[in-house]
Design a binder for these strands. Structure first.
Length: 446
RNA sequence: GGCCGGAUGGCAGAGUGGCUCAUGCUCUGGAUUGCAAAUCCAGCUACCUCGGUUCGAUUCCGGGUCCGGCCUCCA
Protein backbone atom coordinates (compact mmCIF):
# COMPACT_ATOMS: atom_id res chain seq x y z
CA UNK A 1 0.00 0.00 0.00
CA UNK A 2 1.32 3.41 -0.98
CA UNK A 3 1.24 5.81 1.96
CA UNK A 4 1.54 9.54 1.46
CA UNK A 5 2.66 11.83 4.21
CA UNK A 6 3.01 15.59 4.29
CA UNK A 7 6.54 16.19 5.45
CA UNK A 8 6.98 19.49 7.26
CA UNK A 9 10.65 19.36 6.37
CA UNK A 10 10.09 19.42 2.61
CA UNK A 11 6.65 21.04 2.80
CA UNK A 12 5.41 18.50 0.28
CA UNK A 13 3.61 15.18 0.19
CA UNK A 14 6.06 12.30 0.08
CA UNK A 15 5.63 8.57 -0.30
CA UNK A 16 6.38 6.96 3.01
CA UNK A 17 9.29 4.57 2.68
CA UNK A 18 10.52 3.23 6.02
CA UNK A 19 14.23 3.25 6.78
CA UNK A 20 13.75 -0.33 7.96
CA UNK A 21 10.50 -1.88 6.79
CA UNK A 22 10.84 -4.52 9.52
CA UNK A 23 10.67 -1.85 12.20
CA UNK A 24 9.06 1.51 11.64
CA UNK A 25 10.22 3.97 14.30
CA UNK A 26 8.18 6.91 15.49
CA UNK A 27 8.89 9.55 18.12
CA UNK A 28 6.32 12.04 19.39
CA UNK A 29 6.82 14.79 21.94
CA UNK A 30 4.75 14.03 25.02
CA UNK A 31 3.52 16.21 27.83
CA UNK A 32 5.37 18.41 30.28
CA UNK A 33 3.87 17.19 33.50
CA UNK A 34 3.02 20.20 35.61
CA UNK A 35 -0.76 20.29 35.19
CA UNK A 36 -3.70 18.44 33.65
CA UNK A 37 -3.67 18.22 29.87
CA UNK A 38 -6.20 20.24 27.89
CA UNK A 39 -8.10 19.32 24.77
CA UNK A 40 -5.40 20.88 22.58
CA UNK A 41 -2.82 18.60 24.14
CA UNK A 42 -5.08 15.66 23.41
CA UNK A 43 -4.89 16.20 19.68
CA UNK A 44 -1.37 14.91 19.01
CA UNK A 45 -2.03 12.03 21.40
CA UNK A 46 -5.01 10.94 19.35
CA UNK A 47 -3.61 11.72 15.91
CA UNK A 48 -0.37 9.84 16.41
CA UNK A 49 -2.22 7.04 18.14
CA UNK A 50 -4.19 6.60 14.93
CA UNK A 51 -1.03 6.80 12.85
CA UNK A 52 0.54 4.06 14.97
CA UNK A 53 -2.60 1.87 14.86
CA UNK A 54 -2.67 2.27 11.08
CA UNK A 55 1.04 1.50 10.71
CA UNK A 56 0.76 -1.50 13.01
CA UNK A 57 -1.87 -2.87 10.66
CA UNK A 58 0.38 -2.30 7.63
CA UNK A 59 3.88 -3.07 8.92
CA UNK A 60 5.17 -6.07 10.86
CA UNK A 61 6.65 -3.94 13.64
CA UNK A 62 6.30 -0.34 14.78
CA UNK A 63 8.24 1.13 17.67
CA UNK A 64 6.47 4.13 19.11
CA UNK A 65 8.13 6.39 21.67
CA UNK A 66 6.37 9.23 23.44
CA UNK A 67 8.42 10.94 26.11
CA UNK A 68 7.43 12.56 29.37
CA UNK A 69 9.08 15.86 30.24
CA UNK A 70 9.41 15.84 34.00
CA UNK A 71 12.11 18.46 34.38
CA UNK A 72 11.30 21.97 33.23
CA UNK A 73 11.05 25.50 34.57
CA UNK A 74 7.27 25.34 34.43
CA UNK A 75 7.35 22.36 36.76
CA UNK A 76 9.57 24.22 39.20
CA UNK A 77 7.28 27.24 39.12
CA UNK A 78 4.17 25.11 39.57
CA UNK A 79 5.64 23.21 42.51
CA UNK A 80 6.44 26.49 44.26
CA UNK A 81 2.97 27.77 43.50
CA UNK A 82 1.34 24.61 44.86
CA UNK A 83 3.82 24.37 47.69
CA UNK A 84 4.22 20.81 46.51
CA UNK A 85 7.30 18.65 46.23
CA UNK A 86 8.42 18.34 42.58
CA UNK A 87 8.39 14.55 42.60
CA UNK A 88 4.90 14.51 44.08
CA UNK A 89 3.71 16.97 41.47
CA UNK A 90 5.14 15.10 38.51
CA UNK A 91 4.05 11.69 39.81
CA UNK A 92 0.52 12.91 40.40
CA UNK A 93 0.40 14.64 37.01
CA UNK A 94 1.72 11.60 35.17
CA UNK A 95 -0.97 9.46 36.78
CA UNK A 96 -3.65 11.93 35.73
CA UNK A 97 -2.20 12.07 32.23
CA UNK A 98 -2.23 8.28 31.94
CA UNK A 99 -5.85 8.21 33.03
CA UNK A 100 -6.84 10.91 30.54
CA UNK A 101 -5.04 9.15 27.71
CA UNK A 102 -6.82 5.95 28.59
CA UNK A 103 -10.19 7.70 28.61
CA UNK A 104 -9.44 8.93 25.11
CA UNK A 105 -8.66 5.33 24.06
CA UNK A 106 -5.04 6.24 23.33
CA UNK A 107 -2.91 3.11 23.44
CA UNK A 108 0.22 3.05 25.59
CA UNK A 109 3.32 3.68 23.47
CA UNK A 110 6.07 1.07 23.32
CA UNK A 111 8.28 3.34 25.37
CA UNK A 112 7.39 6.30 27.56
CA UNK A 113 10.77 7.52 28.78
CA UNK A 114 11.12 10.22 31.40
CA UNK A 115 13.63 13.03 31.00
CA UNK A 116 14.87 12.76 34.59
CA UNK A 117 15.89 9.17 33.94
CA UNK A 118 18.13 10.15 31.03
CA UNK A 119 20.35 12.89 32.41
CA UNK A 120 23.61 10.95 31.79
CA UNK A 121 22.63 10.40 28.15
CA UNK A 122 21.97 14.12 27.77
CA UNK A 123 25.27 15.08 29.37
CA UNK A 124 27.07 12.75 27.00
CA UNK A 125 25.53 14.51 23.99
CA UNK A 126 26.35 17.91 25.44
CA UNK A 127 29.95 16.84 25.91
CA UNK A 128 30.18 15.63 22.32
CA UNK A 129 28.69 18.88 21.07
CA UNK A 130 31.34 20.84 22.94
CA UNK A 131 34.07 18.59 21.52
CA UNK A 132 32.65 19.09 18.03
CA UNK A 133 32.67 22.87 18.58
CA UNK A 134 28.89 23.04 18.20
CA UNK A 135 28.45 24.12 21.80
CA UNK A 136 30.32 26.22 24.32
CA UNK A 137 30.52 26.62 28.07
CA UNK A 138 29.77 30.02 29.52
CA UNK A 139 29.51 30.68 33.24
CA UNK A 140 27.84 27.44 34.38
CA UNK A 141 25.74 27.33 31.19
CA UNK A 142 26.27 25.38 28.02
CA UNK A 143 24.87 26.85 24.82
CA UNK A 144 24.42 25.43 21.38
CA UNK A 145 26.01 27.67 18.81
CA UNK A 146 23.54 28.02 15.97
CA UNK A 147 26.06 29.51 13.59
CA UNK A 148 28.11 26.31 13.87
CA UNK A 149 25.47 24.52 11.85
CA UNK A 150 24.95 25.79 8.33
CA UNK A 151 21.60 24.04 7.88
CA UNK A 152 20.14 25.54 11.05
CA UNK A 153 16.59 26.71 10.40
CA UNK A 154 15.84 24.36 7.54
CA UNK A 155 12.82 22.74 9.22
CA UNK A 156 11.07 25.94 10.19
CA UNK A 157 12.35 28.09 7.35
CA UNK A 158 13.72 30.54 9.88
CA UNK A 159 16.76 32.57 9.00
CA UNK A 160 19.07 33.70 11.75
CA UNK A 161 19.13 37.38 10.78
CA UNK A 162 15.33 37.43 10.52
CA UNK A 163 15.05 35.93 13.96
CA UNK A 164 17.09 38.75 15.38
CA UNK A 165 14.90 41.29 13.58
CA UNK A 166 11.95 39.76 15.34
CA UNK A 167 13.58 40.86 18.58
CA UNK A 168 11.88 38.07 20.40
CA UNK A 169 14.93 36.11 21.38
CA UNK A 170 15.95 35.88 24.97
CA UNK A 171 18.42 38.57 26.01
CA UNK A 172 21.31 36.83 27.62
CA UNK A 173 24.77 38.31 27.76
CA UNK A 174 26.27 34.87 28.24
CA UNK A 175 25.30 33.91 24.70
CA UNK A 176 27.62 34.54 21.79
CA UNK A 177 24.68 35.01 19.48
CA UNK A 178 21.05 35.74 20.30
CA UNK A 179 19.82 32.57 18.56
CA UNK A 180 21.99 30.27 20.65
CA UNK A 181 19.98 28.08 22.97
CA UNK A 182 20.74 26.48 26.28
CA UNK A 183 21.73 22.83 26.66
CA UNK A 184 22.55 22.98 30.35
CA UNK A 185 21.81 25.62 32.97
CA UNK A 186 22.66 26.00 36.64
CA UNK A 187 20.20 25.22 39.42
CA UNK A 188 20.18 26.79 42.84
CA UNK A 189 21.12 24.65 45.82
CA UNK A 190 18.04 22.73 46.86
CA UNK A 191 16.45 23.30 43.48
CA UNK A 192 15.93 20.40 41.08
CA UNK A 193 19.31 19.56 39.57
CA UNK A 194 22.13 17.11 38.92
CA UNK A 195 25.86 17.26 39.48
CA UNK A 196 27.85 17.51 36.28
CA UNK A 197 31.17 18.71 34.94
CA UNK A 198 29.40 21.98 34.12
CA UNK A 199 28.30 22.37 37.71
CA UNK A 200 25.07 21.56 39.53
CA UNK A 201 22.27 22.15 37.07
CA UNK A 202 19.56 20.86 34.79
CA UNK A 203 19.12 20.30 31.07
CA UNK A 204 17.62 22.75 28.61
CA UNK A 205 14.29 21.96 27.05
CA UNK A 206 15.33 20.35 23.78
CA UNK A 207 18.17 18.02 24.69
CA UNK A 208 16.01 15.31 26.26
CA UNK A 209 14.36 14.43 22.95
CA UNK A 210 17.72 14.07 21.21
CA UNK A 211 18.90 11.77 24.00
CA UNK A 212 15.80 9.63 24.34
CA UNK A 213 15.04 9.25 20.64
CA UNK A 214 18.59 8.07 20.10
CA UNK A 215 18.37 5.62 22.96
CA UNK A 216 15.13 3.97 21.88
CA UNK A 217 15.07 4.52 18.13
CA UNK A 218 18.62 5.16 17.07
CA UNK A 219 20.43 8.13 15.59
CA UNK A 220 17.99 8.28 12.69
CA UNK A 221 14.39 7.20 12.62
CA UNK A 222 11.28 7.43 10.46
CA UNK A 223 8.78 9.89 11.84
CA UNK A 224 8.96 12.65 14.40
CA UNK A 225 5.67 14.20 15.36
CA UNK A 226 4.17 16.87 17.53
CA UNK A 227 2.12 20.03 17.49
CA UNK A 228 2.67 22.81 15.00
CA UNK A 229 4.00 25.03 17.75
CA UNK A 230 6.95 22.71 18.31
CA UNK A 231 8.45 23.27 14.86
CA UNK A 232 10.32 26.27 16.13
CA UNK A 233 12.30 26.31 18.27
CA UNK A 234 11.90 22.83 19.74
CA UNK A 235 12.21 20.55 16.74
CA UNK A 236 14.61 22.84 14.97
CA UNK A 237 16.89 22.64 17.97
CA UNK A 238 16.51 18.89 18.31
CA UNK A 239 17.68 18.50 14.73
CA UNK A 240 20.67 20.74 15.41
CA UNK A 241 21.66 18.77 18.50
CA UNK A 242 21.13 15.30 17.05
CA UNK A 243 22.66 15.90 13.64
CA UNK A 244 25.71 17.64 15.10
CA UNK A 245 26.26 15.17 17.93
CA UNK A 246 25.61 12.02 15.92
CA UNK A 247 27.09 13.43 12.70
CA UNK A 248 24.08 12.43 10.64
CA UNK A 249 22.48 14.30 7.71
CA UNK A 250 18.99 14.02 9.20
CA UNK A 251 17.33 13.15 12.48
CA UNK A 252 13.90 11.99 11.34
CA UNK A 253 13.07 11.18 7.74
CA UNK A 254 9.55 12.60 8.00
CA UNK A 255 8.25 15.36 10.25
CA UNK A 256 4.54 15.51 10.98
CA UNK A 257 2.84 18.35 12.81
CA UNK A 258 -0.77 18.61 13.88
CA UNK A 259 -2.73 21.85 13.81
CA UNK A 260 -4.24 23.56 16.81
CA UNK A 261 -7.48 23.18 18.63
CA UNK A 262 -9.01 26.64 18.81
CA UNK A 263 -11.62 28.29 20.99
CA UNK A 264 -13.55 31.01 19.22
CA UNK A 265 -11.03 30.49 16.45
CA UNK A 266 -8.05 31.32 18.60
CA UNK A 267 -5.42 28.87 19.66
CA UNK A 268 -6.25 27.00 22.85
CA UNK A 269 -3.30 27.38 25.18
CA UNK A 270 -2.42 27.43 28.80
CA UNK A 271 -0.87 30.86 28.57
CA UNK A 272 -3.97 32.33 26.92
CA UNK A 273 -6.11 30.75 29.61
CA UNK A 274 -8.76 29.76 27.06
CA UNK A 275 -8.34 26.04 27.58
CA UNK A 276 -10.68 23.24 28.54
CA UNK A 277 -9.01 20.33 30.30
CA UNK A 278 -9.67 16.84 29.09
CA UNK A 279 -11.08 16.09 32.56
CA UNK A 280 -13.63 18.86 32.25
CA UNK A 281 -14.68 17.76 28.80
CA UNK A 282 -14.99 14.17 30.07
CA UNK A 283 -17.53 15.29 32.61
CA UNK A 284 -19.93 16.02 29.76
CA UNK A 285 -18.88 13.68 26.98
CA UNK A 286 -17.19 10.32 26.77
CA UNK A 287 -13.57 10.11 25.63
CA UNK A 288 -14.69 8.41 22.48
CA UNK A 289 -16.87 11.37 21.53
CA UNK A 290 -13.94 13.74 22.07
CA UNK A 291 -11.81 11.42 20.00
CA UNK A 292 -14.37 11.29 17.18
CA UNK A 293 -14.61 15.06 17.20
CA UNK A 294 -10.84 15.49 16.91
CA UNK A 295 -10.62 12.91 14.13
CA UNK A 296 -13.47 14.53 12.20
CA UNK A 297 -11.06 17.23 11.02
CA UNK A 298 -7.86 16.68 9.11
CA UNK A 299 -4.90 16.64 11.49
CA UNK A 300 -3.16 19.63 9.97
CA UNK A 301 -6.25 21.87 9.94
CA UNK A 302 -7.43 23.81 12.95
CA UNK A 303 -10.42 22.46 14.84
CA UNK A 304 -12.62 24.81 16.76
CA UNK A 305 -13.58 23.31 20.09
CA UNK A 306 -17.12 23.65 21.37
CA UNK A 307 -19.53 21.52 23.32
CA UNK A 308 -22.00 21.93 20.44
CA UNK A 309 -19.60 20.19 18.10
CA UNK A 310 -19.07 17.44 20.67
CA UNK A 311 -22.80 17.01 20.75
CA UNK A 312 -22.84 16.68 16.99
CA UNK A 313 -20.05 14.11 17.19
CA UNK A 314 -22.06 12.14 19.69
CA UNK A 315 -25.07 11.98 17.35
CA UNK A 316 -22.85 10.80 14.51
CA UNK A 317 -21.09 8.24 16.67
CA UNK A 318 -24.41 6.93 17.98
CA UNK A 319 -25.40 6.21 14.40
CA UNK A 320 -22.25 4.16 13.85
CA UNK A 321 -22.83 2.29 17.09
CA UNK A 322 -26.37 1.34 16.04
CA UNK A 323 -24.94 -0.34 12.96
CA UNK A 324 -22.18 -2.23 14.70
CA UNK A 325 -24.31 -4.18 17.09
CA UNK A 326 -23.37 -7.81 17.50
CA UNK A 327 -20.21 -7.68 15.41
CA UNK A 328 -16.83 -8.79 16.70
CA UNK A 329 -13.58 -7.31 15.43
CA UNK A 330 -11.78 -9.29 12.76
CA UNK A 331 -8.88 -8.49 10.44
CA UNK A 332 -11.02 -7.54 7.49
CA UNK A 333 -10.63 -3.78 7.00
CA UNK A 334 -12.45 -1.82 4.33
CA UNK A 335 -10.13 -0.93 1.46
CA UNK A 336 -11.56 2.50 0.79
CA UNK A 337 -11.19 3.28 4.47
CA UNK A 338 -7.53 2.27 4.42
CA UNK A 339 -6.98 4.21 1.25
CA UNK A 340 -8.30 7.36 2.96
CA UNK A 341 -5.85 6.92 5.81
CA UNK A 342 -3.01 6.35 3.38
CA UNK A 343 -3.52 9.85 2.03
CA UNK A 344 -1.76 11.82 4.74
CA UNK A 345 -3.96 10.28 7.41
CA UNK A 346 -7.21 11.67 6.04
CA UNK A 347 -9.36 10.72 9.03
CA UNK A 348 -12.42 12.81 8.00
CA UNK A 349 -12.53 10.95 4.70
CA UNK A 350 -12.08 7.65 6.54
CA UNK A 351 -14.96 8.53 8.86
CA UNK A 352 -17.16 9.43 5.91
CA UNK A 353 -16.47 5.94 4.57
CA UNK A 354 -17.59 4.49 7.90
CA UNK A 355 -20.87 6.34 7.49
CA UNK A 356 -21.26 4.97 3.98
CA UNK A 357 -20.76 1.48 5.41
CA UNK A 358 -23.38 2.29 8.04
CA UNK A 359 -25.82 3.27 5.32
CA UNK A 360 -25.16 0.08 3.37
CA UNK A 361 -25.68 -1.90 6.55
CA UNK A 362 -28.99 -0.15 7.17
CA UNK A 363 -30.06 -1.15 3.69
CA UNK A 364 -29.47 -4.78 4.64
CA UNK A 365 -25.82 -5.49 3.86
CA UNK A 366 -24.44 -7.32 6.90
CA UNK A 367 -20.90 -7.43 5.57
CA UNK A 368 -20.83 -3.64 5.72
CA UNK A 369 -21.64 -3.77 9.42
CA UNK A 370 -18.78 -6.17 9.98
CA UNK A 371 -16.38 -3.95 8.02
CA UNK A 372 -17.61 -0.94 9.95
CA UNK A 373 -16.86 -2.53 13.30
CA UNK A 374 -13.43 -3.84 12.33
CA UNK A 375 -12.29 -0.76 10.43
CA UNK A 376 -13.27 1.57 13.24
CA UNK A 377 -10.67 -0.07 15.46
CA UNK A 378 -7.91 1.62 13.41
CA UNK A 379 -9.34 4.99 14.46
CA UNK A 380 -9.84 3.77 18.02
CA UNK A 381 -13.62 4.08 17.64
CA UNK A 382 -16.45 1.65 18.45
CA UNK A 383 -14.33 0.33 21.30
CA UNK A 384 -17.18 -1.14 23.29
CA UNK A 385 -20.20 -3.16 22.38
CA UNK A 386 -23.19 -1.32 21.14
CA UNK A 387 -25.31 -2.34 24.13
CA UNK A 388 -22.63 -1.11 26.50
CA UNK A 389 -22.40 2.17 24.61
CA UNK A 390 -26.10 2.84 24.86
CA UNK A 391 -26.95 1.46 28.26
CA UNK A 392 -23.96 1.42 30.58
CA UNK A 393 -23.61 4.33 32.90
CA UNK A 394 -23.29 4.73 36.62
CA UNK A 395 -26.42 5.04 38.68
CA UNK A 396 -28.71 3.45 36.18
CA UNK A 397 -31.37 1.10 37.45
CA UNK A 398 -31.66 -1.34 34.55
CA UNK A 399 -34.23 -3.45 36.32
CA UNK A 400 -36.52 -0.49 36.80
CA UNK A 401 -36.17 0.49 33.14
CA UNK A 402 -36.92 -3.03 31.97
CA UNK A 403 -39.96 -3.21 34.24
CA UNK A 404 -41.30 0.04 32.88
CA UNK A 405 -40.79 -1.17 29.33
CA UNK A 406 -42.65 -4.42 29.91
CA UNK A 407 -45.44 -2.52 31.60
CA UNK A 408 -45.64 -0.28 28.58
CA UNK A 409 -45.62 -3.21 26.16
CA UNK A 410 -48.45 -4.75 28.13
CA UNK A 411 -50.39 -1.52 27.73
CA UNK A 412 -49.61 -1.45 24.01
CA UNK A 413 -50.90 -4.97 23.62
CA UNK A 414 -54.10 -3.90 25.31
CA UNK A 415 -54.17 -0.84 23.03
CA UNK A 416 -53.96 1.44 26.03
CA UNK A 417 -51.80 3.89 24.10
CA UNK A 418 -52.43 6.64 26.57
CA UNK A 419 -50.69 4.69 29.33
CA UNK A 420 -48.00 3.50 26.91
CA UNK A 421 -47.15 7.07 25.93
CA UNK A 422 -47.16 8.14 29.53
CA UNK A 423 -44.57 5.52 30.42
CA UNK A 424 -42.48 6.52 27.43
CA UNK A 425 -42.54 10.13 28.60
CA UNK A 426 -41.47 9.03 32.05
CA UNK A 427 -38.57 7.09 30.59
CA UNK A 428 -37.63 10.09 28.47
CA UNK A 429 -37.57 12.26 31.54
CA UNK A 430 -34.94 10.03 33.12
CA UNK A 431 -32.91 10.13 29.91
CA UNK A 432 -34.02 6.86 28.37
CA UNK A 433 -35.09 6.69 24.73
CA UNK A 434 -36.88 3.66 23.42
CA UNK A 435 -37.25 2.07 20.07
CA UNK A 436 -39.98 -0.48 19.26
CA UNK A 437 -38.68 -3.26 17.04
CA UNK A 438 -40.71 -6.14 15.66
CA UNK A 439 -40.41 -8.44 18.64
CA UNK A 440 -38.72 -6.35 21.28
CA UNK A 441 -38.30 -2.85 22.62
CA UNK A 442 -34.78 -1.45 22.78
CA UNK A 443 -33.71 1.34 25.03
CA UNK A 444 -30.69 3.62 25.27
CA UNK A 445 -29.46 6.50 27.31
CA UNK A 446 -29.46 9.92 25.65
C1' G B 1 8.87 43.78 10.37
C1' G B 2 10.08 38.43 8.50
C1' C B 3 7.90 33.72 7.50
C1' C B 4 3.75 30.12 7.21
C1' G B 5 -1.42 28.38 6.72
C1' G B 6 -6.63 28.98 5.62
C1' A B 7 -11.50 31.01 3.22
C1' U B 8 -16.68 25.22 0.43
C1' G B 9 -24.09 24.78 1.34
C1' G B 10 -27.95 26.53 8.09
C1' C B 11 -23.47 24.29 10.92
C1' A B 12 -19.15 20.92 10.79
C1' G B 13 -16.00 19.14 7.07
C1' A B 14 -13.67 16.15 2.61
C1' G B 15 -12.63 16.56 -2.41
C1' U B 16 -12.21 17.56 -7.63
C1' G B 17 -9.78 21.01 -14.29
C1' G B 18 -15.89 19.12 -16.89
C1' C B 19 -19.58 13.87 -14.17
C1' U B 20 -26.60 12.79 -10.89
C1' C B 21 -23.67 12.46 -5.88
C1' A B 22 -18.67 13.74 -0.58
C1' U B 23 -19.91 12.53 4.44
C1' G B 24 -22.07 13.93 9.17
C1' C B 25 -25.29 17.19 12.17
C1' U B 26 -29.62 20.44 12.05
C1' C B 27 -34.22 21.77 9.65
C1' U B 28 -38.43 20.75 6.07
C1' G B 29 -41.37 17.12 3.26
C1' G B 30 -42.43 11.85 2.03
C1' A B 31 -42.28 6.41 3.18
C1' U B 32 -42.58 3.42 7.64
C1' U B 33 -44.83 3.33 12.87
C1' G B 34 -50.91 2.89 17.13
C1' C B 35 -48.01 7.44 18.03
C1' A B 36 -42.87 7.76 18.38
C1' A B 37 -37.86 6.30 17.80
C1' A B 38 -34.67 4.12 14.38
C1' U B 39 -34.26 3.58 9.12
C1' C B 40 -34.82 4.81 3.89
C1' C B 41 -35.97 8.65 0.03
C1' A B 42 -36.14 13.86 -1.29
C1' G B 43 -35.20 19.03 -0.39
C1' C B 44 -32.75 23.15 1.98
C1' U B 45 -29.66 29.27 -4.18
C1' A B 46 -21.79 25.57 -1.66
C1' C B 47 -17.27 26.62 -3.39
C1' C B 48 -14.29 34.96 -0.33
C1' U B 49 -13.08 38.67 -4.33
C1' C B 50 -10.79 40.60 -8.88
C1' G B 51 -7.87 39.26 -12.98
C1' G B 52 -5.08 35.37 -15.91
C1' U B 53 -4.29 30.36 -18.19
C1' U B 54 -8.02 26.99 -20.47
C1' C B 55 -12.98 24.78 -24.99
C1' G B 56 -14.12 24.69 -19.63
C1' A B 57 -11.81 26.68 -12.78
C1' U B 58 -14.51 26.03 -6.54
C1' U B 59 -10.09 23.24 -8.15
C1' C B 60 -4.04 25.81 -11.53
C1' C B 61 -1.38 30.94 -11.54
C1' G B 62 -1.19 36.25 -9.88
C1' G B 63 -3.27 40.57 -7.09
C1' G B 64 -6.77 41.93 -3.15
C1' U B 65 -9.76 41.35 1.30
C1' C B 66 -10.56 38.84 5.73
C1' C B 67 -9.12 35.14 9.51
C1' G B 68 -5.47 32.28 12.14
C1' G B 69 -0.45 30.88 13.46
C1' C B 70 5.13 30.98 14.20
C1' C B 71 9.38 34.26 15.11
C1' U B 72 9.08 33.96 23.57
C1' C B 73 6.78 29.06 27.16
C1' C B 74 3.26 26.32 24.27
C1' A B 75 0.58 20.17 21.54
Amino acid sequence: MNIEIFNTYSKTYENFIPIDSENVRIYVCGPTVYDFIHVGNARPLIIFDVLVRFFKFIYPKVTYVRNITDVDDKIIIQSKKNNENITDLTKRTIEAFTEDAKSLHVLTPDHEPKATEHIPEMLKIIKTLIENKNAYYSNKHVFFSVSSMSEYGSLSGMKLDEMIDGARVEVNSLKKEPGDFVLWKPSEKGEMGWESEFGYGRPGWHIECSAMSEKFLGKQFDIHGGGLDLIFPHHENEIAQSCCAFETPFMAKYWMHNGYITVNNEKMSKSEGNFITVRDALRRFSGEVIRYSILSGHYRSPINFSFESLNESKSALDRLYRCSEGFEIDNNIDQEFLSALSKDLNTPLAISRLHELAKEFNKGNRLSGQLLKSSSRILGLLNVSSSEWFTKKDQIDEEKINNMISERNKARKEKDFHLADKIRDELKSIGVSIEDKENETKWRLD
